[in-house]
């Protein structure tokens, strides 16, 4: 090959790469613009706050209040976070500070497997294990009757789903706290636990917040597993043993049938927009914090 053709090839390849990179980045903006564009028709009819806080969901009458779904989303996510956060933090501290290499070598592959399991499988697990548990034990314990398909069932399933996300980020975050800093505390006569409490957790605090925020955004958007166990009832739920229908489930359950009603399509994309914006905010904020932590390491 002559030098000229080699250089030409290099030049062309570079152009192609640039194009693809641009495409990958633009996808994000295209999705955003697309969702905004599609939810615009319904936003013309009323203010966004009307849709966010109205509980009237009657597509046939063109009433599209998202409040029941937002409340369900908040319930399910909150339950998942309350259940997952303490266990994930404790397990991550154990794995990064106490466990020896052998145990870590056993557990990290398991967590990776957990991360790879598709959400429909989590849904099936929810149906086989969690639904009967809620129906036969948890609801009677609170003196209630439940089919087992409820917000707390969704929350429990979701809490297991976000474990790998949170644990992996937490392990990375703890790894950014330098050994020298921990040794500085140890050399003053602090115990390992005092060092963890006063130095590791304090230094890692922004990272822990980001790990929580990222898991939260994952939980917000999770569709199928939750849909399978949450009961899918369009009503503002009043307790965590009530069934509900979070935003992603709303979209998935109704998207096929919206063709005949004018604004239905737009309403469901408004639900997507709400999801998208929440996920976007949590994601960008936590990624930026994590990145800053990584930089400080160097």
């Amino acid at each position: 090959m002559s030098d000229k053709t080699r250089l030409q090839f290099d030049y062309r390849l570079k152009g192609l790469m640039k194009l693809f990179t641009l495409f990958a980045v633009l996808t994000l903006f295209i999705i955003f613009i697309g969702v905004v564009f599609k939810s615009y028709p319904i936003l013309k009819t009323n203010s966004i706050f009307h849709f966010l806080f109205s509980s009237e969901w009657f597509p046939q009458k063109e009433k599209f209040g998202l409040f029941p779904f937002i409340v369900s989303t908040l319930w399910v996510t909150a339950i998942a976070m309350v259940l997952a956060v303490p266990f994930c933090i404790l397990a991550s501290i154990y794995l990064s500070e106490y466990a020896d290499k052998k145990i870590i070598g056993w557990i990290t592959p398991l967590i990776d497997i957990l991360a790879g399991i598709p959400s429909v499988i989590f849904g099936i697990w929810g149906i086989i294990v969690v639904v009967p548990f809620v129906r036969d034990y948890l609801a009677p314990f609170f003196g209630k009757v439940s089919t087992g398909y409820s917000l707390i069932t969704g929350g429990i399933v979701l809490s297991v789903m976000i474990v790998p996300v949170m644990v992996n980020i937490l392990l990375e975050v703890f790894a950014t706290v330098s050994k020298g800093l921990k040794e500085a505390s140890l050399s003053l006569g602090a115990t390992k636990w005092q060092t963890i409490k006063n130095v590791l957790l304090r230094k890692a605090a922004p990272g822990i917040v980001s790990a929580i925020a990222l898991s939260l955004s994952r939980a917000f958007g999770e569709t199928l597993a939750v849909l399978m166990v949450v009961g899918n009832v369009t009503k503002v739920p009043h307790s965590m043993l009530d069934p509900g229908q979070p935003l992603p489930a709303l979209i998935a359950n109704n998207y096929g049938e919206m063709m005949s009603i004018d604004l239905y399509d737009s309403a469901l994309l408004l639900a997507s927009l709400v999801l998208f914006i929440i996920v976007l905010i949590f994601n960008i904020a936590s990624r930026l914090i994590l990145r800053k932590m990584e930089r400080n390491l160097g």
Binding site: V25, G34, K38, R218, G221, T223, I251, Y255, L268
Partner: peptide, 26 residues
């Protein structure tokens, strides 16, 4: 490069139902 990474990470976090819904409209 870091900006590209940030965009990709955010894309990764976008719920797949949003891809599905918007994709169908497109």
């Amino acid at each position: 490069s870091n900006f590209v990474r940030l965009c990709l990470d955010v894309l990764w976090g976008v719920p797949s139902i949003v891809y599905g819904a918007l994709g169908f409209s497109l």
